[in-house]
Structures are given as structure tokens and as C-alpha cells.
């Protein structure tokens, strides 16, 4: 199991890019952390989410 923004999900084995696409996130409007470490945007396609990881997807909306 993987914890995503506090919720348990069965997503171990997918890449960050695949996870974002499947869940409707726009990769230009998010920051992704795994176990509190930022995942560089250039590594979204190569970073695999592992069992036991804690993933935080910070999604930004407009306004300021």
C-alpha cells in the first residue's frame, strides 16, 4: 500500500508520471514529494512509487 495525501492507495509499481495522469493531475501545476523529498520534474517518468511510500501531491490552483 502507498499513502497518497494521507489516503491508502494500491498504486505501488507505477511511475509518478503515470500516477499523475491516471488521477487527472496537470503535471505543470503540481509538486510531488515522496517520503518528504521533492521529486524533480525531470524524474517524473523514471521515478517508481514503491510499496510503503508516503506520497504528497501538492496541487496548485490560480489566484493571488
Amino acid at each position: 500500500m502507498v499513502k497518497v495525501n494521507g489516503t491508502q492507495m494500491e498504486i505501488a509499481g507505477v511511475t509518478v508520471a503515470e500516477f499523475l495522469e491516471k488521477n487527472g493531475y496537470d503535471r505543470t501545476k503540481v509538486a510531488v514529494e515522496i517520503n518528504l523529498d521533492i521529486v524533480p520534474k525531470a524524474r517524473y517518468d523514471s521515478t517508481v512509487i514503491n510499496d510503503g511510500d508516503s506520497v504528497e501531491v501538492v496541487s496548485f490552483v490560480g489566484g493571488g
Binding site: D26, T28, K29, V30, A31, E33, I38, P40, K41, V58, F60, V61, G62, G63, G64
Partner: peptide, 14 residues
């Protein structure tokens, strides 16, 4: 103001 600019800065800084 813009979401993609927010994400650019946050990712860049982190």
C-alpha cells in the same frame, strides 16, 4: 497568481 508559476517556483526552490 498563476498555478503553473506557483508550481515552477515551488519545484525550483525545493
Amino acid at each position: 497568481d498563476k498555478a503553473n508559476q506557483k508550481a515552477m517556483l515551488v519545484n525550483g526552490v525545493l
